[in-house]
Design a protein around this nucleic acid. Structure first.
Lengths: 113, 113
DNA sequence: TTGACATATTCCCATATAGGAATGTATATT
DNA sequence: AATATACATTCCTATATGGGAATATGTCAA
């Protein structure tokens, strides 16, 4: 079996750096394809193809305005990724706590010299 | 150009569902490969190969214990994904707010009937 | 040393890209 | 209708899989 399609879910779709970049540009802002092409210095077909992947998984919404296709990020679809990563939060919090504890131990040791 | 390697970064590594599953199993718990094989009902070579990808990007740590290789999730490497998704938080919060507002409008309209 | 056990690695192949180049489609303007 | 503008789609190719099968490596036990 080969790798899962980029359009199989949000996880696969955002694995591509240029697509994450697109989502950042379209966060809370509606933009036509041409603007992305200029800002990202990427060929128009490439931008359109990335946008198609993002559309397929619902990460962006489109609206036609004359000749322009206005895209914007649909953050709701990013949320599951947020929720998944968040389940590991306690782990890195633990690690930070242990680092803090060690730092305090060190300080204590210094004072008692 | 083909798709970026699964080992190029954490984003690509966690795009694979079985690898996310592994990270969940190893969250805060050290386990040998054999345990993952049983729990995930996946062939041992597959598990080992997924573990290699996760090791390459630092998402898991290993320690040898006799014949057993003890793996555990290194949450620090998941944190960047969390931080990235978190930057979109305000957007879905907005959306929720708008949904709430609409609900209130509706209620208001019902009361004034 | 010889097995037995636990994992890693290699070889295989069908599949899915990402970008470049060329072309197709839809809409506005004159 | 004819042309220009804005995007989308198709064709192409080098590359990277993920799992199955077979094999290699490393460690413990007798």
């Amino acid at each position: 079996m080969a790798r899962a399609a980029t359009t199989s879910d949000a996880f696969n779709a955002v694995a591509e750096p240029r697509r994450r970049e697109i989502l950042e540009h379209l966060a809370g802002v509606e933009l036509p394809v041409g603007d992305l092409v200029i800002r990202m210095r990427l060929e128009q077909p490439s931008v359109s193809k990335h946008l198609k992947v993002l559309r397929d998984v619902g990460l962006v919404r489109v609206r036609r305005n004359g000749r322009h296709m206005m895209y914007r990020t649909n953050a709701e679809e990013i949320r599951p990724l947020y929720e998944w990563t968040k389940t590991f939060e306690r782990l890195w919090a633990h690690q930070l706590l242990r680092i803090k504890e060690r730092a305090e131990e060190k300080e204590k040791a210094l004072k008692s010299e």
